[in-house]
């Protein structure tokens, strides 16, 4: 089965006065139908810019300088804005962290949802409205027909995010990019939305890239995980491989810093230092200055290489038995 999305060697650079910022620096990934890929990283790791690049939403001074993005075999890099408009909102959808970025505050929900349908298909308003009602009830909004005529501010934060997700589902896209959509929500609301999203991925076969900094969300939701650091994927594999037996020292550090049951009261293992400035990356492996395993070999950038199953970009990967100990 060919993947829905195939990104190879993607480089998105920002040309700023302070120099070139390689926000995304050679990212390759694939997503299959009905699969959820968790794209994990901290602020500034390039995870959101990867999502924006796939959506064709990178604005000046940023530009995709290299690589290819194929959606169902069709190359997206280099499309004209006109061609982009026929894909974006139809085959490709994005859900933002803040639903008010998706919703227009001065338009009623029905206006926005019907427009999203009729922009891509020649259907009657009545049919479009019916589809909007169907989408709203699919994400668990009670009495969807009435709620359609409300304005975004009349919804609570969780409900607004549901409306944004329902809008994303309207045209049955092939791929949804979710950029931290539950980060601002309460745990109970987050669980409700994750529940709906999981059901939808299974029911509709929509592929999904779930961008987040929260490993615990990924562990319950994703089939595969890719961990980003300083514009590069440093480790990728199935969720079990990456979370149970991490290879890359950064992934090991990230998992160690999650407060968990068995280490109560003891200091959390922490990664020293902080994310490096993207205009002034250390030579070789970007994680080198913070890495407990770094040595002279790390001055040469490591490649993403297979280490017993998962791929890790490291000269000194943890071997699974050691990481589990």
């Amino acid at each position: 089965m060919s993947p829905v999305l195939k990104v190879s060697g993607l480089k998105t650079h920002f040309f700023t006065r302070a120099g070139v910022v390689p926000a995304v620096d050679g990212v390759s990934l694939t997503v299959d139908r009905g699969e959820v890929l968790g794209l994990v990283g901290e602020s500034g790791s390039g995870k959101s810019v990867t999502g924006f690049s796939i959506m064709g939403l990178v604005d000046a001074p940023g530009r995709v300088v290299e690589g290819s993005i194929e959606l169902n075999g069709r190359e997206l890099v280099g499309l004209t804005e006109r061609e982009w408009r026929s894909i974006r909102g139809k085959s490709l959808m994005i859900i933002f962290q803040d639903p008010m970025m998706t919703l227009n505050p001065v338009l009623r929900v029905d206006t926005q949802m019907i427009e999203a349908v009729t922009a891509h298909e020649r259907v009657s308003r009545r049919a479009a409205r019916a589809r909007a009602i169907e989408a709203l009830s699919a994400v668990g909004i009670p009495s969807p027909a009435e709620r359609l005529s409300a304005y975004p501010h009349q919804f609570s934060g969780g409900m607004r995010q549901r409306v944004a997700i329902a809008t994303a589902l309207l045209n049955r896209p092939d791929l949804i990019i979710a950029d931290e959509p539950t980060t601002a929500l309460d745990v109970t609301i987050q669980a409700q939305i994750l529940y709906e999203v999981q059901k939808l991925a299974i029911d509709t076969g929509t592929a999904m890239i779930w961008i987040t900094h929260d490993l615990t969300v990924v562990s319950g939701l994703a089939d595969r995980v890719a961990v980003m650091y300083a514009g590069k994927i440093v480790e990728t594999g199935t969720t079990d491989q990456v979370l149970d037996a991490p290879r890359h020292p950064y992934t090991v550090g990230l998992i160690g810093s999650v407060p968990s049951h068995n280490k109560r009261g003891q200091p959390l293992s922490q990664i020293p230092g902080m994310t490096p400035s993207m205009t002034n990356l250390p030579e070789g492996c970007a994680f080198r200055p913070r890495c407990p395993r770094a040595d002279d070999r790390c001055r040469v950038t490591p490649e993403l290489t297979p280490t017993t199953g998962a791929l890790a970009r490291c000269h000194h990967p943890h071997i699974p038995s050691e990481a589990a100990a």
């Binding site: 987050q190 669980a191 529940y195 999981q198 562990s219 319950g220 969720t239 998992i255 968990s260 049951h261």
Partner: peptide, 20 residues
């Protein structure tokens, strides 16, 4: 029950109904 944990895989999220 809603706390996401690292050791839970592909779990079915079941939510308390409604909002505050």
């Amino acid at each position: 029950a809603e706390v996401p944990r690292l050791d839970q895989r592909k779990r079915t999220f079941a939510a308390i109904k409604g909002e505050i």
